[in-house]
């Protein structure tokens, strides 16, 4: 089963569950000894539960830049890192362009997985 590291962490530490791999490109800081799926033979496997901020299309660019600058600063602050770390969330703080590329790549990838596997909504 695929689970959030925080939900699994306690069970992994007590031995009730065995952690085989993490799904992201980098190892999780909460479970540094658990290899990534990519390290385990699935080259390029990189799936994460990501979080991002957006504004309605047409929001003036200077406003987007102002929000971006403050959010990038916010996720790097030590008390924020601590709070997010407790949830198993690793901070990113990307540029708007990089986030747009992530969204496009994710949309393309999930469309293919859903089609190939014949996934239907609940």
């Amino acid at each position: 089963m695929f689970n959030n590291p925080v939900t699994s962490l306690a069970h992994v530490k007590t031995g009730r569950l065995r952690a085989l791999a993490v799904t992201t490109a980098k190892r999780a800081s909460s479970l540094p000894d658990v290899p990534t799926a990519a390290e385990s033979g699935l080259a390029g496997f990189d799936v994460g539960f990501w979080l991002g901020a957006l504004a309605p299309a047409g929001t003036p660019r200077p406003i987007i830049d102002r929000l971006n600058a403050e959010m990038v600063k916010a996720v790097q602050m030590s008390e924020v890192l601590e709070r997010l770390g407790a949830l198993g969330v690793e901070p990113i703080g990307s540029t708007p362009e990089s986030f747009a590329r992530t969204i496009d790549a994710e949309a393309t990838r999930w469309a293919k997985v859903i089609k190939d596997a014949g996934v239907k909504a609940d």
């Binding site: 590291p5 990501w50 929000l67 959010m71 996720v75 990089s98 986030f99 747009a100």
Partner: peptide, 10 residues
């Protein structure tokens, strides 16, 4: 309009 990818959980 994307602003920032702020974080990720594995």
């Amino acid at each position: 309009a994307p602003i920032s990818l702020v974080g990720q959980t594995a």
